[in-house]
Design a protein around this nucleic acid. Structure first.
Length: 571
RNA sequence: GCGCCCGUAGCUCAACUGGAUAGAGCAUUUGAUUUCGGCUCAAAAGGUUAAGGGUUCGAAUCCUUUCGGGCGCACCA
């Protein structure tokens, strides 16, 4: 058992024993949780716990008194050197070197397969779902990388993951797209340069697609284009898919809006909503930010979202009778539930925020059994070059595409950056700092730690052979830095578990950075004093240290590959 | 106008979801090393966590007011 579980279990047993002794109820144990963590400071010992602070009120004694009672029991542990109770009631525990050496050998025995003890759930994670009306930009990249990293992490802890991309291939946008292409094709047919009308999509990209279609199919009349509309979507989608593959992202399903929102499905859902009195034909309130002159009231099918805390009731069908995006999204999500997913996770850009409430409330009214539906919103990404924020406008069709960004900084840097920030924080994506090839660049720093491990492991052929045969001991690992490395390594699974639980992959990048830092420091000891080099003239000592290096490299590699960032052996 | 998110060192970010003296990396200063003012290493300095009030053993974290920034609020996605 690695230290977190080991100590938690031990403390838990002690607490129960004390409760029995004092004739107290133990039902609070299920609702309140205590920590076991790596001590922040050296004089706080190896591990610290806040048990006494969390539980003292249930014992009706002071935290310090409870801490003292617990520590009396802890001191009986054969690995424990010293237990201290500090001020408000923290328990600081000092372990013997043997404990940490054992921890390392247990970690090695796990050989990368850790039992997270979680109930396997089937999870559908929907991300990217960029509208197929142009190339992906940096904002899409954020959602894409985050969704993909989360998928890996959730899969790692044992869940069944399905990664989906919802293709918005129906509705106004596609009509507008086709109109735009048609316009360009007309221009080509007439060999003219008519200016693009305001209501169409701007940008060279679509112009090029028009050329492709025009050439490939040798169009002679614009009416022929109508038959090629599917082709347009296909080309754009294949560009998006190519970008995703370049980002190391593979979705399991691409679900088409068109196929989901068949007239039959729409009718069924509509009737159900009417039947449940969740929808009605009526007039929408005028939105607060719209002036009266611009506001035209029309009757349409509305969802009673106001009942569920929304500001106004939302349109399910347009006055024309076509479905709104809300309606087709509702169809899509009920479809997900029908496919027996227990957890739905969506990664959306923060600009879709307004849709969260209505979709969640509508779904909760339609589906009566248990499921979890979480929508993670990603904040904006600012592109920064030479200290200046780059101005972009998707509306004007002038924006930097994701492939341009990849070309400039590489996939690894892009992925690392996107993962390393909490989703609700705006990212300043600084090209210059991501291109630097030294320790100021966190990706480089982590990858370099791995490369450094590998280059060390290349040298001592004889020792490595003996290690492979299992001829080694870990007794020599007694330096403070070595203990720190072991602590970090054994904390790996805990980091993964928390990362999965809170949907926060940035914990992993932070962890990898810290582990790398500790390792670089350890390596640096050898520069100050030769006897602290990893490869020494003492065969057993060298082997102990090589094992540690090996495990560091494996952990870095595992963390990086979970995030689909490469682990180069040399750089 | 209303709603949500954010505000942490000069800059970019952490803080194990309520825990200890709020931590890193740049940048700064000092020292060591280098036949390099540039590389590397070490140390120091840097904070009323935007501001006020509240909740409790304990708050960057929860509640509340104010200020600043972002996003959203018919249809479109």
């Amino acid at each position: 058992m690695l230290f977190q579980e080991y100590l938690k279990k031990e403390i838990f047993e002690i607490v129960i024993k004390l409760l029995e002794k004092m004739n107290l109820e133990s039902d609070f144990l299920e609702k309140h949780f205590f920590n076991v963590e790596i001590s922040q400071k050296q004089n706080f010992g190896d591990l610290s716990s806040n048990v006494a602070l969390v539980f003292s009120k249930f014992f009706k004694i002071s935290p310090e008194k409870l801490a003292e009672l617990i520590s009396i029991e802890l001191r009986k542990d054969k690995y424990v050197l010293k237990v201290e109770v500090i001020k408000p009631g923290f328990i600081n525990i000092f372990f013997s070197n043997l404990f940490w050496q054992n921890q390392l050998s247990q970690f090695i025995k796990l050989d990368g397969s850790y039992n997270y003890n979680l109930k396997t759930k089937s999870i559908c994670i929907e991300f990217v779902s960029a509208n197929p009306t142009g190339l992906m930009h940096i904002g899409h990249a954020r959602g894409a990388v985050l969704g993909d990293a989360m998928s890996s992490v959730l899969q790692e802890v044992g869940h069944n993951i399905t990664k989906e991309y919802y293709i918005n291939d129906a509705g106004e946008q596609i009509k507008k797209l086709n109109k735009t292409i048609l316009f360009h094709v007309e221009n080509l047919l007439e060999d003219s340069e008519n200016p693009l009308p305001d209501d169409l999509y701007p940008g060279e990209y679509l112009k090029n697609i028009a050329k492709k279609i025009f050439n490939k199919f040798a169009l002679k009349k614009s009416s022929e284009l109508k038959e090629k509309e599917e082709k347009i979507l296909e080309i754009i989608l294949s560009d998006i898919k190519k970008d995703l593959v370049d980002l190391n992202i593979n979705h399991d399903n691409f679900v088409s809006e068109k196929s989901i929102s068949s007239s039959d499905n729409i009718k069924k859902l509509k009737n159900k909503l009417l039947e449940l009195k969740l929808a009605y034909y009526g007039f929408q309130e005028k939105p607060k930010n719209i002036s009266s002159e611009d506001w035209e009231q029309k009757e349409q099918l509305l969802f009673c979202s106001k009942k569920f805390g929304d500001d106004s009731d939302r349109a399910l069908m347009k006055p024309s009778g076509e479905v709104t995006y809300f309606m087709s999204d509702l169809l899509y999500h009920t479809d997900k539930i029908k496919r027996k997913f227990e957890i739905l996770i969506n990664i959306w850009g923060v600009d879709h925020f307004g849709y969260v409430k209505r979709l969640k409330s509508a779904l909760s009214q339609l589906i009566k059994h248990d499921y979890i539906f979480d929508i993670k919103l990603t904040s904006l990404v600012n592109l920064i070059k030479k200290g200046e924020k780059l101005k972009m406008s998707k509306r004007k069709g002038d924006y930097i595409t994701m492939r341009e960004v990849i070309k400039e900084v590489g996939v690894d840097a892009l992925r690392f950056m996107m993962i390393s920030r909490n989703a609700d924080k705006t990212i300043d994506f600084d090209f210059d700092s991501l291109k630097i090839k030294n320790k100021d660049n966190p990706v480089f720093y982590v990858q370099y730690a791995y490369a450094r491990c590998m280059s060390i492991l290349e040298i001592p052929k004889k020792e490595i052979k003996e290690i492979e045969k299992g001829e080694y001991k870990l007794d020599y690992l007694i330096l403070h830095e070595e203990k720190m490395l072991i602590k970090y390594i054994c904390n790996f699974y805990n980091v993964i578990k928390n990362s999965a639980e809170y949907f926060e992959p940035h914990r992993i990048t932070n962890y990898l950075y810290d582990l790398s830092k500790t390792f670089h420091n350890y390596w640096g000891l050898g520069n100050i004093d030769n006897k602290n080099k990893i490869i020494t003239d003492n065969n057993d000592l060298t082997k102990s240290r090589l094992i540690l290096v090996k495990v560091v490299s494996m952990t870095l590699n595992k963390g990086l590959s979970l995030l689909k960032i490469s682990s180069p052996k040399s750089m």
